[in-house]
Amino acid sequence: MKKIVLSLVVIASVLTACKGEKKEKAVETKEEVKVETKVADLNNVDTAISVLNWKGTKPTGAHNGTVALKSGGLLVENGELQGGEFIVDLATITNVDMAGSEGAGKLEGHLKSADFFDVEKYPTSKFVITNVEDKGDNIHVTGNLTLKDVTKSITIPATISTEGGVTTFESEKFMVNRADFNIKYGSKSFFDDLKDKFIDDNMELSFVVKTKA
């Protein structure tokens, strides 16, 4: 009987460990890096089809959506990414999973409010590429991410390709800890009495940026 109990304890421990491993970690944030190459003046990003995708989660579910780019530039030489700058228009935050419903409108309004991104005060976000490292199947792109009044350096995996005169920069999905950028609403990093009413600090993001033809 003792052997059976011991076996069940071992199995439960293994399953618990495996379950814990599935939770994705946020990318590491470091101090802002100085940028020498300025590409904003290129203004060659097609803002009509470029997008920042987002997803937020909480104990009762998840919501996802998009944010449009206001402007941007990609510097590519001989097929290799040399630099880039994306200005994200936070006034265009859109919820996709409840699109067309009253709930979508309420969520969009809440995300734009001072509780989250405070769009009236900080109308844009920015990602400025500071370094690109070739990893074979993909590239590791380091850049300064600005949200609200905080700028941190992060590194994300991505791909770069050109077809028909259009260059596409596409990042893999990556996690950013919103607490690092002082986005406090429903965050257990700032509040202790939330119980199951919290919203996860880690938010999932991904870029799809295309240049003009």
Rank of each mutant, 00 (worst) to 15 (best):
1 M>I: 10
5 V>F: 09
5 V>M: 09
6 L>T: 13
7 S>G: 11
7 S>K: 12
8 L>R: 09
13 S>Y: 10
13 S>H: 02
13 S>I: 15
13 S>P: 02
23 K>Q: 10
26 A>M: 01
29 T>W: 14
32 E>W: 04
34 K>A: 14
34 K>R: 09
34 K>Y: 07
35 V>M: 13
40 A>P: 05
40 A>Q: 11
41 D>K: 11
44 N>A: 11
47 T>C: 04
49 I>Y: 04
50 S>M: 04
50 S>Q: 00
50 S>K: 03
52 L>C: 11
52 L>A: 15
52 L>Q: 06
53 N>R: 08
53 N>D: 09
54 W>G: 03
54 W>F: 07
55 K>H: 00
59 P>D: 02
59 P>M: 00
60 T>W: 03
61 G>R: 08
68 A>D: 08
70 K>E: 15
72 G>R: 05
74 L>G: 01
74 L>I: 05
76 V>Q: 10
76 V>C: 06
78 N>R: 10
79 G>V: 13
82 Q>H: 05
83 G>H: 12
85 E>V: 14
90 L>P: 07
90 L>T: 15
90 L>D: 13
93 I>D: 13
98 M>E: 14
100 G>C: 05
102 E>T: 09
107 L>Q: 09
107 L>H: 00
108 E>W: 10
109 G>V: 09
110 H>Q: 11
111 L>M: 13
113 S>H: 12
114 A>H: 07
114 A>W: 06
117 F>H: 05
122 Y>W: 04
123 P>M: 14
124 T>W: 03
124 T>L: 00
126 K>A: 14
126 K>V: 09
127 F>C: 05
128 V>N: 10
133 E>R: 04
134 D>E: 14
135 K>N: 12
136 G>M: 05
136 G>N: 11
146 T>K: 07
148 K>Q: 05
149 D>R: 10
149 D>W: 02
149 D>C: 00
150 V>I: 15
151 T>Q: 08
153 S>G: 01
153 S>N: 15
158 A>E: 01
159 T>M: 07
161 S>K: 15
161 S>A: 15
163 E>T: 14
165 G>I: 06
166 V>W: 07
166 V>G: 03
166 V>D: 11
166 V>H: 02
168 T>H: 14
168 T>W: 11
172 E>T: 11
174 F>L: 06
175 M>A: 09
177 N>M: 06
177 N>Y: 01
180 D>W: 00
182 N>K: 14
182 N>L: 01
189 S>G: 06
191 F>W: 12
192 D>R: 03
195 K>R: 02
195 K>E: 12
197 K>L: 02
199 I>S: 12
200 D>R: 06
202 N>W: 07
205 L>M: 13
207 F>V: 04
210 K>V: 01
210 K>N: 08
211 T>P: 12
213 A>T: 13
